[in-house]
Simulated scan of single mutants.
Amino acid sequence: MSAPLRLVLFDVDGTLVDSQGAIVSAMTASFQAQSLPVPSRNAILSIVGLSLPHAMARLASDQSDLVQNALVDGYKQAYHAQRLEQGAASSPLYPGAREVIQALHDMPEVLLGVATGKSKRGLDALLEAHGLEQHFITRQVADHHPSKPHPSMIETALAETGVGAAHSVMVGDTSFDMEMAAAAQVAGIGVSWGYHDRSALSTAQYVIESFEELPVTLANIWD
């Protein structure tokens, strides 16, 4: 009997790639363009993973919807300009990410996917820049879903792939990722190298310290 299909969903920013420099730079440019005080680096990184409107609502809670919308547009423009200028260097892969993704991709029973607060345009450009566009069978982005931690992204990925929740996991660096996993009733694997402190990953089933630990952790969950 063949092994059941498994699904591994990855967050992107802070999990697969270290994009904090690009995020902070684009957020700084956006706030400066509106002549507003720039939030601290910690404040900016705390909202990574949320869709941009939700992120701006937290960072600029005292501003009108009009200003928050302008901040969203400014961020998109600044981030896009950086990506065009720097390419993959604007969001480098974390150590071990490529090797583990390839190893999992080579396993016939394992499907890979993405659940990210990025836009479709941003995700597609990032995966292409790193040569990973063929590795992820399902891509859930902010354009089509409520913001994390709503379970919509995971639920849609399960429906698209036909994999059950019991055979699926969500890998991410933020409390939003782990809360989304819990809401969708899939196992959450937190990563310690991202943008939320390890203490924020309290709903994770496991927390790993490096990508090299992921295959063993998956085996522990599924076996």
Score class of each variant (00 low, 15 high):
S2G: 03
D13S: 08
G14V: 14
D18M: 12
S19P: 12
S19M: 05
S19G: 15
Q20W: 06
I23N: 13
A26N: 15
A26D: 09
M27G: 09
T28Y: 00
S30I: 01
S30H: 02
P39A: 02
P39S: 01
S40K: 04
N42H: 12
L45R: 12
I47T: 11
G49R: 15
G49K: 15
S51C: 02
L52E: 05
L52H: 01
P53T: 11
H54N: 14
M56E: 05
D62K: 10
Q63N: 01
L66Y: 08
N69D: 10
N69E: 06
V72C: 13
D73G: 02
G74H: 07
K76V: 08
A78C: 03
A78M: 10
H80K: 13
L84F: 11
L84K: 14
Q86R: 14
G87H: 09
P92N: 03
Y94Q: 05
A103I: 06
D106Y: 00
V110W: 01
T116C: 00
T116P: 00
G117T: 06
K118M: 04
K118T: 09
K120F: 00
H130S: 10
Q134A: 03
V141T: 15
V141C: 12
H144D: 15
H145V: 00
P146I: 01
P146G: 02
P146Y: 06
P146N: 12
M153K: 02
E155W: 00
T156V: 06
L158Y: 00
A159D: 04
T161E: 01
G162V: 05
V169I: 03
M170C: 07
D173S: 11
T174W: 04
T174K: 08
T174M: 08
E179Q: 15
A187V: 15
G188C: 09
V191I: 07
S192D: 12
G194I: 09
H196D: 08
A200T: 08
Y206C: 04
V207I: 08
F211Q: 04
L218F: 02
L218S: 11
A219N: 11
N220L: 11
D223L: 10
